[in-house]
Design a protein around this nucleic acid. Sequence first.
DNA 1: CGGATGATTGAGAAGTCTCAACCGTGGTGG
DNA 2: CCACCACGGTTGAGACTTCTCAATCATCCG
Lengths: 260, 260
Amino acid sequence: VTAEAALERFLSRLLNRSSLSKVEQGAILRLSGRVSTFRPRVDIVVPGQHVDYACLVGRGIAARFDQMRNGQRQLAAFYIPGDMCDLHSIVAPTAAWGITAISATTIVHVPHAQLCKAIADHPNLALAFWRDGTADASILAKWLGNLGRQDARARLAHILCEFGIRMEAAGLGTRTAFDLPISQEQLADALGLTPVHVNRTMQRLRAEGLVWTHNQRIEILDWAGLAATAEFDPIYLLFAKRDGPGRQSRHIAEANTAAS
Amino acid sequence: VTAEAALERFLSRLLNRSSLSKVEQGAILRLSGRVSTFRPRVDIVVPGQHVDYACLVGRGIAARFDQMRNGQRQLAAFYIPGDMCDLHSIVAPTAAWGITAISATTIVHVPHAQLCKAIADHPNLALAFWRDGTADASILAKWLGNLGRQDARARLAHILCEFGIRMEAAGLGTRTAFDLPISQEQLADALGLTPVHVNRTMQRLRAEGLVWTHNQRIEILDWAGLAATAEFDPIYLLFAKRDGPGRQSRHIAEANTAAS
DNA sequence: CGGATGATTGAGAAGTCTCAACCGTGGTGG
DNA sequence: CCACCACGGTTGAGACTTCTCAATCATCCG
């Protein structure tokens, strides 16, 4: 995977939410950075580290995590190819969190200097970056609601729906069929559950005919059913450009009825 | 409470994390907006609403919430005077969440038009706003870790420590003594617990000599002890300017040793 | 074949929830 | 001045979800 391909995915992600001129798009594509790969479970950024670059995922899956004193981890976000894990490190370069590789992951380290220059040359990019971070924060808030107010079954169903929509938007499968190289133990760290309980809950979703899994492939057999048990409404992903609310409501309708 | 006083608090909050020139500070103070008040439990912004203003808290406490289908709510953030609840609505004007009044609350509705003009005139303000939103997201991530990986006692202890530091930083008391006009039921909605369990847990913290409460006043009798049970480390509040990591580590040391 | 990783199973323990009731205080109206 | 009501805090007992610990199984890979 080359840096260029990753930057194209990144631009594509930005365009999901922001309108950018050709010139601004060119500025994104002209970014560059050192490419490195990480094995699963290796930390890419450790908590408290001061960084002068942002981490763009080119291949694999990365996650933001918070670590407790006893070593337990809470994953606060999953990043798929095209996601810039810590774009906000531009404005807050000392991370209070860490980034870890979930599966084998390729990262492009884009220097802050380049990103700052792009922002200075094209102020609209700062707004696009801010909007991108706002979308991540919106996902975080939704996860909080899931952890606080939904049981294990709804939580698992919700994250599967979320991955479906995000994978599809990133061109990495359809919302009902995609590869998810995440172990049940890692899912447990994201859902605030025990690996054992994730296992039993996944079995239940399978038994109910909602999903089918094999190796690390997910197939959602009953999208409407899964979305209903998850109370899933993709509005929180903020897949809508600034140009008004009309597009957004259409999006919800699509997501909750299609392919079921 | 006047709009001017609220804007001064807002500027003060921005200066906690960003360096702004006198001119930029002036641009903040020249903002204005319609002032209105809300009774407790009244919604200020309803989920899905399209807004063309941001909500600045002048007095009282507001909260961002996510609502489940059965009516249960999860609070995802508390906003104290000087906090701009939904600054990010500038870049994502259709809210996926709601804002509600926790106590009697005064809100200044600052039009997006004014904020956009300020950003256009002073690009550095966009970065300050983005940084402010990043701090809110960082708090959100920490809450997620609390919900996912800490028990009720640690969660409650953590939110009390957080309020202590934030209240002190906002000039609304000291970290060990402040007014907190939030009912146990509302705390439960933030902590992902039942009001009954919040009550029992609060009793336990009192019995352990960690805190003392009366009416809606909190006194933290043993800061070090409370911080230890909460695994509280204020680094996640991002109370550090861009000027390097030195100041930050000092801050942690202070917060975990002082006033205990 | 051995070792590592991830998925699966079982049984008992623990934390939290549910429901229902009761108490104390402040405000309101007769 | 008192009766009443609303609200928030408190208590008790039983139910339920999820955790803990420990073991087993399946697959991949060297």
